[in-house]
């Protein structure tokens, strides 16, 4: 970019950008591998390298092996959930053209959690597949509702209106969740697990059913990268360039909803990952969604893994749920973003 004045240099500049992006991609993948290793190795009980190696090969002879064997599915879950939330956040920010969009802030996670609780209480749901469908339905309804309320009237969906609509929806949803659960002693023990999300206690049995949903959401989101680039120019410009605005927006939003709903059904509501990660990635690779979306997924996985490891370390011998750690990491970033913007843009 520095040599933009020399003839032929745009090509060189683009190549430079691509080299930088490839370098960042390498760094991010290495960081992800390191974070996975940390997540397997660090916890309430410390284990040695030999035990990690044995546990990864599936031995469960010693306590150390078993600990590693428990941590592996947890790590897988954290990677999947983090990637899903990071990607969903990037897509939501693109679809709403709004820097504060996040599945937590917009009440999508709360909607999914409420739908699952209602299903458990009123329809006696107990199977994971049923949870998944209900959570995705709840996430979709909450997303449509918040977006509709936030974009009514003149000015469209400003960050302030969307955030307020999301906050109101979250409060209403959690109020209803408590109201439904309170008289039901059989499910009331789960109230807290639907207030804060965590990846502890994940098993392959819980992960497997959500894979198709996550895969479908991933495909939809990644496929919409090009149209998100067009949408970033504004609806009229995007339509002029041949994008089918409504269809592109609906497809991308459906992908994000699938990702959020499936994640919330397994882990409970985890906030702020989808807010922080895209902003970080924009600093690394710029605003091109074809790069931004995969990077958001990778970085989201790293963030959630690190948050999970941190939650295991800070509160020894017990653990801190990952949703709490991400709130502590995310809220300052949220405030920083708000402070960056001019009042008129809010």
């Amino acid at each position: 970019m520095s040599g933009a004045l020399a003839p032929g240099s745009p090509q060189a500049g683009l190549r430079g950008v691509r080299h930088a992006r490839m370098a960042w991609l390498f760094v991010v993948i290495c960081a992800l591998a390191a974070a996975c290793l940390l997540s397997v190795g660090i916890g309430t009980r410390s284990v040695g390298w030999a035990e990690i190696a044995g546990g990864l090969r599936g031995h469960t002879d010693t306590l150390g092996h078993s600990v590693v064997a428990v941590r592996v599915p947890r790590t897988v879950m954290a990677v999947l959930a983090g990637a899903a939330l990071g990607l969903a956040g990037a897509v939501m920010q693109g679809v709403t053209r709004n820097p504060l969009a996040d599945p937590g802030i917009l009440g999508v996670n709360a909607g999914a959690a409420m739908a699952v609780v209602l299903g458990m209480a009123w329809f006696g749901m107990a199977r994971l597949e049923a949870f998944l469908w209900t959570a995705i339905l709840g996430a979709g309804l909450a997303a449509c509702f918040v977006y509709a309320v936030g974009s009514l009237g003149r000015g469209g969906a400003t960050p302030l209106k969307l955030a307020l609509a999301g906050a109101a929806t979250s409060i209403a949803a959690s109020s209803l969740t408590v109201a439904v659960m309170l008289p039901r002693n059989d499910i009331a023990g789960g109230v807290r697990s639907w207030q804060v999300g965590g990846v502890g206690g994940a098993t392959y049995d819980a992960i497997l059913p959500c894979l198709p949903f996550l895969a479908a959401g991933l495909m939809l989101c990644l496929a919409s990268a090009r149209s998100l680039n067009l949408l970033a120019l504004g609806d009229e410009a995007a339509a002029g360039l041949g994008a089918r605005v409504d269809r592109a927006r609906a497809g991308a939003a459906l992908g994000a909803v699938l990702l959020c709903g499936a994640t919330t059904a397994i882990c409970g509501p985890i906030g702020f990952v989808g807010l922080v990660v895209p902003h970080l990635c924009r600093l690394l690779v710029g605003v091109d969604h074809r790069w931004l979306l995969p990077f958001s997924a990778l970085t989201g996985a790293i963030l959630l893994l690190c948050a999970d490891v941190l939650g295991r370390v800070v509160a020894r011998p017990s653990e801190m749920d990952v949703g709490i750690v991400t709130a502590f990491v995310g809220a300052p970033v949220f405030i920083w973003i708000v402070r960056q913007r001019r009042v008129r843009d809010l």
């Binding site: 807290r192 804060v196 906030g271 749920d321 809220a331």
Partner: peptide, 21 residues
């Protein structure tokens, strides 16, 4: 006012998670 409300929403999300913890 707008900035104050948004920052308040962010702070309150953090505090809610302290309460939950």
């Amino acid at each position: 006012g707008a900035r104050l409300i948004l920052i308040g929403i962010g702070i309150s999300a953090m505090l809610e998670s302290i309460i939950a913890w």
